[in-house]
């Protein structure tokens, strides 16, 4: 286990070095930071001084080393657009995205797994067929269409739920949460459904096909021959085997949810990382874009490592035999 952990950490470090290199390259090749920051009527003399102050007169490897050093200390530079530290900007926006993703993941797993099991146990039942057909819609409709349709129905027509923003939030000092107020929770409903829909159908279909495999296996037949109750066979013995690939997919999907919540956040004007990123792109705000890139890279590395470790915990065959 220690060996596995160590090798995974080494691989993670290599990936992160590659990601920082790409982020660094963005500064060098996408636009000229001096021109972006200096006043329009600045003299060449002033620009040279600015470049020197920013360290841009140094050789490229030195600049890269300094960049990595700053990143390692959590310093991602100053946003070109609003002249505030990028770290502060991300810290402000992160809670909103993470709370949204957490709610969506909970929804996707909480509904996807039981529905998948149901479809596997009674593949010809009316409920299973209905769920299967609806899931086709879920998997083939683009997120922005679902989002807009939900807004139109629940916010505009029925006026039950708010159509944008996070509602009232509570500031805990290090974290802002919408989970503690009624309007915060109500605001969460539509965006989290929108974000969860695709994952939900994916997980449901995956659980279904894995369950069908598991149910036809010899050990399930053996469990039936031992006269164990159906609920135990389905939900304990078969489901645990069926969940192995679900772990991988869920892990990677959480990464994509955080990274690509952009569409949902734009549709619902959700003040999260995605919205921050979209604004950064339209203003060519390189420090924010680079920080976002590194954040998403780090997120995927962490999730992948976590998935590998969880795998080893769930499946005893992947643990090193101890003698």
């Amino acid at each position: 286990m220690a060996g596995l952990l160590l090798s995974r950490l080494l691989q993670a470090a290599l990936v992160m070095i590659a990601v920082t290199a790409v982020a660094f390259a963005m500064f060098r090749f996408v636009g000229d930071p001096v021109r972006a920051m200096a006043r329009e009527d600045s003299t060449p003399q002033e620009r040279a001084e600015l470049a020197q102050a920013l360290g841009l007169d140094q050789p490229v490897p030195v600049q890269y080393a300094r960049f990595v050093g700053r990143v390692a200390r959590g310093d991602f530079g100053i946003s070109y657009r609003n002249q505030r530290p990028v770290t502060t900007l991300i810290a402000e926006r992160l809670p909103a995205t993470l709370e949204l993703v957490f709610a969506a993941t909970l929804l996707a797993l909480g509904l996807g797994i039981p529905l998948g099991v149901m479809c596997a146990i009674r593949p010809d039942g009316a409920a299973a067929r209905l769920v299967q057909s609806i899931s086709l819609i879920g998997i083939s409709t683009p997120t922005f269409v679902t989002g807009i349709a939900l807004i139109l129905f629940f916010a505009v027509t029925l006026r039950w739920l708010p159509s944008f923003g996070r509602g009232d939030i509570v500031d805990l000092g290090f974290w802002t949460t919408g989970y503690l107020t009624g309007s915060g929770l109500r605001s969460l409903v539509l965006p989290s459904i929108t974000l969860a829909l695709y994952q939900l159908t994916l997980i449901m279909r995956l659980v279904r096909s894995e369950m069908i495999d598991a149910l036809s296996s010899d050990y399930i037949r053996f469990a039936r021959a031992r006269g164990l109750p159906k609920s135990r066979i389905h939900y304990v013995l078969a489901l645990r085997n069926a969940l192995m690939p679900v772990i991988t997919v869920t892990g990677l999907q959480i990464g994509s949810l955080v990274a690509f919540a952009i569409v949902t956040e734009t549709v619902f004007q959700w003040p999260g990382m995605g919205l921050l990123f979209i604004q950064a792109v339209s203003f060519v705000d390189i420090p924010v874009m680079a920080a976002y890139l590194m954040f998403v890279g780090a997120l995927f590395v962490v999730l992948n490592t976590a998935v590998d470790l969880v795998y080893a915990i769930v499946d005893p065959r992947l643990r090193k035999a101890k003698g």
């Binding site: 296996s217 010899d218 050990y219 037949r221 053996f222 469990a223 021959a225 031992r226 013995l237 645990r240 085997n241 769930v314 499946d315 005893p316 065959r317």
Partner: peptide, 16 residues
């Protein structure tokens, strides 16, 4: 009634 199946490699659940 007890049952014994053909393949002992697959008739036990690998995760328990």
């Amino acid at each position: 009634i007890g049952a014994v199946f053909q393949d002992p490699m697959t008739s036990l659940n690998p995760l328990f």
